[in-house]
């Protein structure tokens, strides 16, 4: 019974986090949501009795991919600033696609 509740919560949380990560307009927030998604996904792999995949997911999926995304975001900000110094026009462009 407790297992079902936990798994249900985990599955719902995963779907919700995935939806939020895809739809949130703030890129930084999206990356943080992606981090959380990866961590919950690692938990889901543990629940599926796949500790190897869980380790890889936690280390690569949540940790390093997130770090790479953050690095890319930092580069986006610096490369956007000279192009359009006044408005944050470029950002809505990025979110839409």
């Amino acid at each position: 019974m407790l297992h079902w509740a936990f798994d249900g919560l985990l599955g719902t949380g995963l779907l919700w986090l995935a939806w939020r990560a895809l739809t949130t307009p703030d890129l930084f927030k999206a990356i943080v949501l992606f981090f959380s998604f990866g961590l919950l996904m690692a938990l889901a792999w543990v629940r599926l009795n796949a500790p190897d995949v869980a380790l890889a997911e936690a280390a690569i999926g949540a940790g390093l991919t997130g770090a790479l995304l953050l690095a890319a975001l930092a580069r986006l900000d610096t490369s956007n600033q000279p192009a359009n110094p006044v408005t944050g026009d470029g950002e809505s462009d990025l979110v839409d696609h």
Binding site: D52, L55, A56, A59, I60, L64, A67
Partner: peptide
């Protein structure tokens, strides 16, 4: 046991980051 090159490598990469 669970573990291996990819997991170890990504932890090493995390240290680098």
């Amino acid at each position: 046991a669970p573990g291996g090159a990819f997991q170890a490598g990504s932890v090493l990469g995390a240290a680098g980051v």
